[in-house]
């Protein structure tokens, strides 16, 4: 079971307290109606599946309830870092 550092609680907590929220840093377009079909499809469905460094969202659902972002190595499953939502990608 992973240990995940919640950047809000500032504690390492077991994975069961969290849910994964998919790839991070996909901002909802400010004006969706002006998006082309192709761009909107990208926003909805196209995701990375990297081998290695991956930015993803987690929510400390059974803790503080906050969403935050993490950099995880998909090979080793090691968390490189976690940081608060809204902070630039690390």
């Amino acid at each position: 079971m992973l240990l995940i550092h919640c950047p809000y609680c500032e504690e390492d907590r077991p994975e069961v307290e969290f849910v994964n929220g998919g790839q991070a840093h996909i901002a909802r377009p400010a004006d969706p109606s002006s998006e082309s079909d192709a761009d909107w499809e990208k926003y909805l469905y196209i995701r990375r599946n990297p081998r290695g460094r991956h930015h993803e969202r987690w929510r400390h659902i059974h803790g503080c309830g906050r969403f935050f972002n993490a950099v995880r190595d998909t090979v080793s499953d090691r968390f490189e870092t976690t940081y608060k939502a809204g902070e630039p990608a690390k």
């Binding site: 929220g21 901002a27 909802r28 969202r57 929510r59 659902i61 969403f67 939502a85």
Partner: peptide, 11 residues
């Protein structure tokens, strides 16, 4: 509620 929190916190 989870969806509401998601949009509220992140978008």
């Amino acid at each position: 509620l989870g969806m509401m929190e998601d949009y509220l916190q992140t978008e």
